[in-house]
Design a protein around this nucleic acid. Structure first.
Lengths: 199, 199
DNA sequence: ACCTGAACACCGTTCAAGT
DNA sequence: ACCTGAACACCGTTCAAGT
């Protein structure tokens, strides 16, 4: 892990990102300091700036790296069941890397889970009968629902006191079913508005 | 703003929170440092610790303070239209205080928009025919959808390049309609699952 | 060309000392 | 009892200097 056979320098971008990801996965995003990262790589903290512009770029690289290993559900009998399985997989995957949602939420990084995955989801939605614009909107809605559930894992909850914490995953799956039901509903989501004057 | 008439000391908890909120509203959560806050209050930074345990508690107080002024929609003809109007109001309110969603997402604070507002929403959902458990789940789903849309305001977007940024509010309203449609659907959201084996 | 230690301007937090 | 300045242990980032 200390030297790449092909490269001429010990320190490489991919090596930095791999070590950074290991720290973030194991101890959270706050533990990922440039000093800590440099120490883990056996180098000085200022050496990192030869390969990465600043901390923001490091986080961006970290998110891009994670996006490449995003899960994608295998083919399924119906669009509805594929979508449910796929977004359950997405939740489970992101739940194992809690720093990702936090980094996205910090606002300085642009998100989206790579390129291929959201496109594939949009294709399934179009195949299910949605207009292309609505399919894109639905992808963003599903993505934001996951993010919200991951980030707000203990809403209305008791951090110290109450023992019966909410089952976050079951909560998310319930919401996912509701959202998918609304998205795939005949006539589309736009037909469901209560006629509120907010627009 | 510097001295409370009734109190004997210049520095009060509510004064600290008010000034902190002003800074966060105007310049974002990162600008809200204890040094800056103390300077704004005309005092030393260590004096704040007499009234607030640490930065975490300050953020908690800030969220509690905001929760008290959460909007609540006026009575409406149908539950569906009330829910849509109410959650559009909630989005607009939180969009004016972007630090709130970020603080919640940071994970150290427990959220939920006070006590009264979520209870009122749950009541409307029960009146619309949901079981009490499902009503609570629906409140959390709606809340997390707002959070996700606020935090991930530029998904799949171009931070520097592309000019045609997504209309985040319209995006949210589309997702809100879809989710409400799924929640209020006859039979409930649980009936909509695609039969996926993920449980 | 690549790396390094020391330094700079910040943080949150603590503490002995003031009134 | 309440407040204060100085200090501590951290950050991200820069820069002159090494090889």
């Amino acid at each position: 892990m200390r030297s790449e056979p092909g490269g001429r320098s010990r320190l490489t971008k991919s090596g930095i990102v791999a070590t950074a990801r290991a720290i973030a996965d194991a101890e959270g995003i706050d533990a990922l300091t440039l000093r800590r990262l440099a120490h883990e790589l056996g180098t000085g903290q200022s050496s990192l700036y030869r390969h990465v512009a600043d901390r923001r770029e490091l986080l961006q690289l970290l998110c891009d790296d994670l996006a490449e290993s995003f899960p994608i559900a295998p083919p399924c009998s119906t669009p509805a069941s594929w979508l449910r399985t796929h977004w359950a997989l997405t939740y489970d995957f992101l739940a194992e890397h809690p720093w990702a949602a936090q980094v996205i939420a910090s606002g300085e990084i642009l998100a989206g889970g790579g390129e291929d995955t959201p496109r594939r989801v949009a294709e399934v939605l179009v195949a299910a009968g949605l207009a292309v614009d609505d399919a894109d909107r639905a992808v963003r809605a599903l993505w934001n629902l996951v993010l919200g559930h991951l980030l707000n894992a203990h809403p209305f909850g008791h951090l110290d006191g109450g023992p019966p914490l909410i089952d976050c995953r079951a909560d998310y799956l319930w919401a996912l079913d509701a959202l998918l039901s609304g998205i795939l509903r005949p006539g589309g989501a736009a037909a469901a508005g209560g006629g509120g004057q907010h627009g």
